[in-house]
Amino acid sequence: MSDTTTTTTTTSPDQALKARHRVMWGLGDYPSVAADLIPELGPVVVTATGIGPGDRVLDVAAGTGNAAVPAAATGADVVASDLTPELFEQGRAVAAARGVELRWEEGDAEALPYPDDAFDVVISTVGVMFAPQHQAAADELVRVCRPGGRLGLIAWTPEGFVGDLFRTMKPYMPPPPPGAQPPPLWGDEAHVRALLGDRVTDVVTRRQSVTVDRFPTPAAFRDHWRTVYGPTVVAYRTVADDPERTAALDRDIEECAARHDRGTGATVMDWEYLLLTARVR
């Protein structure tokens, strides 16, 4: 398989929103987040879905390939799709270092540029959850997966640290468009089951967590996170002209991290996520 990039035109009705999302995920340094803080998530979904040689795999909202690269390392035929192709450069470097090949293709999770039943396995690791129209994205996941094929999804839970962080940042963010749903809802089992409906079977869910212990204090986490994570960068840019609101955002993010800190002498947080696997009928 060759390592190529295919560019497609998004068919979402809200082009302005898609453009903002693409810019947002290109801000900061998401490759460092994927590589340094949550590298274990990709292999978790690859193992849970039993990806192996010959499987046709689509990683939706793949980012830098946290799941796509380890999927390709099993011998699977993998496509990494994302709305923000600027992330692919780092992904290619990681893939090259591991000696694996896959395709990197621009695509909108709510309007995937693939035919029905095109893949044996469709996965997403804290990715598709950021598509604002949840039902449209879920419909696409099912549509492009063949009957009998497998779905594997990882999403941050509403109750966990990242869900709490998004609630914390919401007052400082631009208002979402009508109909947009909060990303951490994808980490609620009942919500995802309702999205997928009776089109899937053999649904298995587990709540797990990734431990983040790289920061000495909650304030150190805040100072790092405000520079590397696109949504947080947007929050700070939104209030940049208001010193009082900037200070309030500083305080609120630090307090959020402190609420989830179980460390002694250094900050240790467990970021809870929902792992869901299913088969398409």
Score class of each variant (00 low, 15 high):
Gln208Thr: 07
Gly265Val: 09
Ala111Cys: 06
Ala19Ser: 14
Asp55Ala: 15
Ala71Lys: 10
Arg207Val: 12
Thr11Gly: 15
Ala93Gln: 14
Arg98Pro: 00
Gly163Thr: 11
Ala73Asp: 07
Val210Tyr: 08
Asp223Val: 02
Pro147Asn: 07
Val239Phe: 09
Phe166Val: 09
Pro31Leu: 10
Arg259Thr: 02
Asp3Lys: 12
Ala240Val: 15
Asp77His: 14
Pro13Gln: 12
His260Val: 01
Gly160Ser: 07
Ala220Val: 00
Pro183Gln: 09
Glu106Ile: 04
Gln208Trp: 07
Gly54Met: 03
Glu110Tyr: 06
Leu17Lys: 11
Pro231Val: 13
Pro132His: 07
Leu195Pro: 02
Cys145Tyr: 01
Gln15Trp: 03
Arg193Ser: 03
Asp139Leu: 02
Arg207Thr: 14
Trp271Gln: 07
Thr47Pro: 03
Val78Tyr: 07
Tyr229Lys: 04
Ala131Tyr: 03
Glu244Asn: 11
Trp25Ala: 09
Asp59Cys: 11
Gly63Pro: 09
Gly179Trp: 11
Val78Ile: 13
Trp104Asp: 03
Arg103Phe: 03
Ala240Ile: 15
Asp252Leu: 10
Val239Asn: 08
Leu112Ile: 04
Tyr273Trp: 13
Val239Asp: 03
Thr246Arg: 15
Leu58His: 06
Glu244Tyr: 07
Thr238Lys: 08
Leu165Asn: 03
Gly152Arg: 01
Gly42His: 10
His191Phe: 14
Lys18Glu: 03
Ile253Cys: 05
Asp59Val: 07
Ala155Val: 11
Pro175His: 07
Glu40Val: 14
Ala137Gln: 02
Thr64Pro: 04
Leu276Pro: 01
Ser32Ile: 08
Val44Trp: 13
Val69Phe: 04
Arg98Lys: 13
Thr49Gly: 04
Leu274Gln: 13
Asp82Thr: 13
Pro39Asp: 09
Gly63Val: 11
His260Cys: 02
Thr264Cys: 02
Val280Phe: 01
Arg206Phe: 02
Val79Asn: 07
Pro158His: 09
His260Thr: 02
Val78Phe: 09
Phe88Arg: 02
Pro216Arg: 06
Asp164Pro: 05
Asp77Trp: 10
Trp104Met: 08
Asp29Arg: 05
Phe161Met: 11
Glu189Asp: 14
Asp188Val: 12
Ser32Trp: 05
Ala109Gln: 05
Leu112Gly: 03
Leu112Tyr: 06
Thr8Cys: 04
Gly127Pro: 12
Ala62Phe: 05
Thr64Ile: 15
Gln15Gly: 06
Ala16Ile: 05
Pro183Arg: 05
Ala68Thr: 10
Asp3Glu: 15
Val122Asn: 00
Ala19Ile: 09
Pro183Trp: 07
Arg207Leu: 06
His260Pro: 05
Ala95Ile: 08
Asp198Gln: 06
Asp252His: 12
Val210Cys: 14
Val268Gln: 00
Thr64Asp: 05
Val234Tyr: 13
Pro31Lys: 12
Leu249Tyr: 10
Ser209Cys: 12
Asp270Asn: 13
Pro13Tyr: 13
Met173Glu: 12
Pro176Val: 15
Gly42Tyr: 01
Ala258Leu: 02
Trp104Arg: 08
Val23Leu: 13
Gly179Asn: 10
His260Lys: 05
Ser81Trp: 02
Gly28Ile: 01
Pro147Ala: 06
Gln181His: 08
Asp82Val: 14
Arg262Asp: 11
Ala96Glu: 14
Leu151Ser: 00
Arg143Lys: 06
Asp59Glu: 12
Gly187Phe: 11
Gly179Leu: 06
Ala68Lys: 09
Phe221Ile: 00
